[in-house]
Design a protein around this nucleic acid. Structure first.
Lengths: 338, 338
DNA sequence: TTGTAGGCGTTATCAC
DNA sequence: GTGATAACGCCTACAA
């Protein structure tokens, strides 16, 4: 007697299951008063159409999957929130997966999602430089897929990104204008497209303003907090940069820690700017200059694009690309005043 | 020819669907070599058992729902990450919902989840003081439910919380020891159990150390950033507190902004401590003293408890309560040195 | 407007 | 060890 299903509800109402079913669909012909009766009784008996049965029948799930490198990260969780908001408006549910930057997990998630669990996927890819052709292998029956932020360039599918090249260029330019001559670039994922693009902006800005590019000032970091700080301390002592541009938020934090330890004064001895969506950047010591990405908007845009793809598969080209603008916000960490 | 199902796979192998099905189950009797053949062909044809069909058959979804007040928040997103990690290990998927602190959304999510979509729910409740008896009304056939962090006291269901009372007590005590005499308590959700508990710790610490409790020093805040800052600026100017204890992370940030604007020096004029899981609290200006909740662990514990409930419904009492300890971390914002 | 019947893809039961 | 069959709960032709 636990679960009420359509049959029991129908019995209770002395109606057929089809009539009951119709009460829950908006398009079907049904007497208004019977519909009302049915809905009333449904409420009373606490009936809800079983999701799995409906979806088995209709072959869709009203669910989208979201795959991100990590969740405990302001940027991605904001993006997920944006996605959730749009999905929720459309009556969709979201499944969330975190790869922790492990490529195998990404592959496994994607493959498993092809069992009907989700109608589409929104993904920010892992950092590893692997053969991601697995996505193409699935392509014949591939689920609608939208990339956001971190993308694979060689996979053709709609995407939402930010103007990373321009942002990197302006951030580097800003450092130069503030008098920096030895600007270090802190990288992760040099191989990933987002890493390349951002680095190119840095390189081109140097060139434009006639600052010699020095390979050694590209400092390659990892995903490990402690390691990075140690690594940076070493690098800073040795290379004596007067500016740092971090391609990723957490490297800005690592820079701060390293400078605290080394008694390097920001911004006097070293100016710092970084990609970051941290709302409280103004509260840091010193306030951090940032390239702020519209994380929430990015999520919303990705979700909207996916829905467009779901609703009009034919008129939404696989090459669709939405580009949102980041904002350069100058704060004390790159200031020249004392 | 798009979707391969068990039938097509069976045809291709000249086997019956039952045999094929057995190949995917570990317990069934099946010839090792046929099993191998089946799995090989499945891989080749890219077959996966349809999730909806299986679950319709088996009456469970291998999915748990997570409902949080917000996602773009370090604390909850860390908790979600913890949940995701455990769920993923168990082969479960997670559906994520954000209520944005709207009670109606919470009710709606919960009700809709009773259609079989999820096997269990992990929730941190919204702040509003509503009649949440709706949870009891569902109780006969209620889905296994675990509360974490923010709970409803009058709903009997397993829960994972932190030692809020003790933490509040020690944080307040710490301020007193640092010489504060007029300690403001910044509240939200006074009516919610977590709000009450935290405030009680503050009140009792005052009493114990013979500092008169003053109603006016309880400052009630909202969820709106700007409003809070304005409100705090007014309150601080008027009430002249020498210590502030914030019951919620974002109120610590609002306090900083307010002090910057008013030229109140932290910690000289005002000492600040707050509940917060912010990893970069040491980087704030000044470094923020915190009651740090183990957000990730909280998520993991909640997920583990839910799985216990799912696996041993009878031996896991509805009154199960796991309490994790927060850590008081003293930093410059409550320091007495200059 | 309502009812009947078949099938969505899977798995468990029962034969063989 | 393998195959036929019924059932999970729902929805939709089609019939009445």
């Amino acid at each position: 007697m636990d679960n009420v299903n359509i049959k029991k509800l129908a019995e209770a109402l002395k109606l057929s299951t089809s009539t009951v079913s119709r009460a829950f669909r908006d398009n079907s012909d049904i007497n208004a008063s019977t519909k009302e009766r049915i809905l009333a009784m449904a409420k009373q008996m606490n009936y809800q159409p079983n999701h799995y049965a409906s979806n088995l029948r209709e072959q869709k799930s009203k669910t989208i999957a979201v795959i991100v490198p990590e969740l405990g990260n302001n940027y991605f969780s904001l993006a997920v929130q944006g996605i959730e908001r749009i999905a929720s408006e459309k009556g969709y549910h979201i499944l969330v997966y975190s790869t922790n930057d492990q490529f195998e997990k990404e592959v496994s998630f994607i493959k498993h999602l092809h069992n009907g669990r989700a109608d589409g996927i929104i993904m920010s890819v892992t950092g590893e430089a692997n053969d991601h052709n697995y996505l193409n292998e699935l392509s014949k029956k591939r689920l609608p897929l939208v990339f956001f932020d971190r993308v694979y360039e060689d996979i053709i599918t709609p995407r939402v990104t930010t103007n990373d090249y321009e942002s990197s260029f302006s951030a580097t330019k800003h450092l130069i204008e503030q008098g920096c001559k030895r600007i270090a670039y802190l990288a992760v994922n040099k191989t990933l497209s987002i890493g390349k693009t951002r680095m190119q902006g840095y390189i081109d800005a140097l060139k434009k303003y006639k600052i010699p590019f020095q390979e050694e000032l590209i400092i390659d970091c990892t995903n490990n907090y402690k390691e990075n700080i140690d690594h940076l301390k070493q690098s800073f002592s040795q290379l004596k940069p007067d500016g740092v541009f971090t391609s990723v938020e957490r490297l800005a934090f690592a820079t701060y820690y390293a400078c605290y330890d080394l008694n390097i004064s920001i911004p006097n001895d070293l100016k710092v700017i970084g990609f970051s969506s941290l709302e409280i950047a103004p509260l840091l010591n010193p306030a951090l200059s940032t390239v702020t990405q519209p994380a929430l908007e990015l999520g919303k845009a990705a979700a909207s694009l996916l829905f467009k793809l779901l609703e009009n598969p034919t008129t939404t080209p696989a090459t669709s690309a939405v580009i949102l603008n980041s904002k350069l916000i100058k704060r004390r960490s790159t200031s020249t005043e004392n």
